[in-house]
Computed example of a mutant assay.
Amino acid sequence: MRRVNVAIAGAAMVLAASACGSSSGSTATAGQQARATVSLAGRPLTPAVVAPTTHLIDTNGSPFDVRSETAGRLTFVFFGYTHCPDVCPTTVADIAAALNQQTPAVRARTTLVFVTTDPDRDSPQIIRQWLNQFDASFIGLTGNWTDIAGYATALGLPTIRPEQAPDGSWTVEHVSQVTAFSPDGTARVGYLANATVANYSHDIPLLLENRM
């Protein structure tokens, strides 16, 4: 297995930079000023990503459009595969642990969408069983490769179709980025494989308030 560790655009930027430089005559609202002072552990996405329509299949075998089905919720979107030995289970486990540190109200408004990058081996049933190890409420999606790759591309993430070698082994590449869509349907921050439980736990309440 190989993974692609995508560098998030603007990773070195200070989050408040987009709101700085106001003069004494600024007409910035109080909400904008409040957002400018918030420090998130996630890395800024530049430009921000507006949730696209998707044509994927959930673990019940039903069509699932991520944008409409998760509207009004904080949604972490992560591409990976169930045979992944390291990054995938660690990332999903970290988000599950962070959610367990939230209040019931915050927890109810937050979810993870896991999209397989290995659709030939990851059936809906396999994805469901794998996700249940971490959190039974997490959403698992599959589909044909064209639709999966198209969704990833819309989020600015590269994809390479899995390959099976003559000896039967597989090479699956996937990005390590978790894309965080706030309840307004826009992703302004993402997380790489080095994000911690504490990072997610800190950011979740702020992202729910669109504080970024």
Rank of each mutant, 00 (worst) to 15 (best):
R121P: 01
D118T: 02
F114D: 04
Q129R: 13
R109L: 12
H83F: 15
N100I: 04
A98Y: 10
P119I: 06
A98R: 05
A96P: 10
T103L: 06
Q133L: 10
L99C: 12
A96K: 11
D122R: 01
T110E: 12
C88G: 12
I126N: 05
T116Y: 01
A108H: 05
Q125Y: 04
A97Y: 06
I126P: 00
V87M: 14
T91D: 11
T111H: 00
C88R: 09
D122F: 01
R128Q: 09
S137Y: 03
V115H: 01
D120W: 05
R109T: 05
L131Y: 07
S123A: 05
T82L: 08
L99F: 08
L131D: 12
L112E: 02
W130I: 00
A108P: 02
D94H: 14
R107P: 03
A136M: 04
V87F: 07
P124K: 05
A97M: 14
D86H: 09
P85W: 04
Q125T: 14
L112W: 03
V113C: 04
I126W: 00
V113L: 06
Q101N: 13
I126V: 13
C88W: 10
D118C: 02
V87I: 15
I127V: 11
D135R: 01
Q133R: 11
Q102M: 14
I127H: 03
S123V: 08
D120E: 15
F138Y: 10
T116N: 02
Q133G: 15
R109C: 03
L131C: 08
Q133I: 10
P89A: 07
I95D: 13
R128G: 05
D135H: 01
Q125F: 06
W130G: 00
C84E: 11
V113P: 01
S137C: 02
L131F: 05
D94Y: 12
V106P: 00
F134A: 05
N132H: 13
D135K: 00
H83Y: 14
T91S: 15
S137V: 06
L112A: 04
C88N: 09
F114N: 04
P119Q: 12
D135T: 01
